[in-house]
Amino acid sequence: MSLRIVVCVKYVPDATGDRHFADDLTVDRDDVDGLLSELDEYAVEQALQIADEADDAEVTVLTVGPEDAKDALRKALSMGADKAVHVEDDDLHGSDVMGTSLVLAKAIEKTGYDLVIAGMASTDGTMGVLPAILAERLGVPQVTLLSEVSVEDGTVKGRRDGDTASEQLEASLPAVVSVTDQSGEARYPSFKGIMAAKKKPVESLDLEDLEIDAEEVGLEGAWTKVDSAAERPARTAGTIVKDEGEGGKQLAEFLASQKFI
């Protein structure tokens, strides 16, 4: 029986760019280049490795995002995913995690799945809660924040390195998994992969296809509201000295003046 893997990938503004908010206090996507969230590359990588180990598996990459989010899907397809689903609808603009997760859950159910794999957090929103919410919405086990993951005989196993302990986890499929950046370097797309990706199917869905009311999502339907966003004032320029043999002592003098010693 085929193992159906759905990987949730997000299209995000490049973290090394000058990210800011648009007038409606949503993430500005116009002035900074977008890309497949680096943390979701780890999810794609683990999906591909699990698929390689399985007799018969299919990897679908799924994104909820604007037109340009197709770039993220292409990248994942060029890494080796089999097909893609893009949920795109003007009414989705400004959705928060509750709205996005609702849409993702419906799209995952429509696609059909045995295993959902997500990244540990998006690099723009950085909430890191969407995978747990998906598990709640789908009513399946959550096996999240894994730095090691494997699937065998309908069971997913993995290691979760927490603050106070490292845990070995186990759950039956279907399940939702998220993987950390400790799970193993993501592969680079090969030239062949990039060429092949151009021919792979990308299915487009909108809210109607998923039978979701526009009022439930988007900025208007959001469960949270951002009232203001202010740029953090630049830190006042500090003192910088060149070490001429006394740098450590000068630093100690500064720390003492600030009452740290």
């Binding site: 500090g238 000295v241 060149k242 740098g247």
Partner: peptide, 17 residues
Amino acid sequence: LVDYGVVGDLFEVVPQL
């Protein structure tokens, strides 16, 4: 970002500090 910075080799500066 710093309030105080030392341009130097950490192997010299840190032990002295």
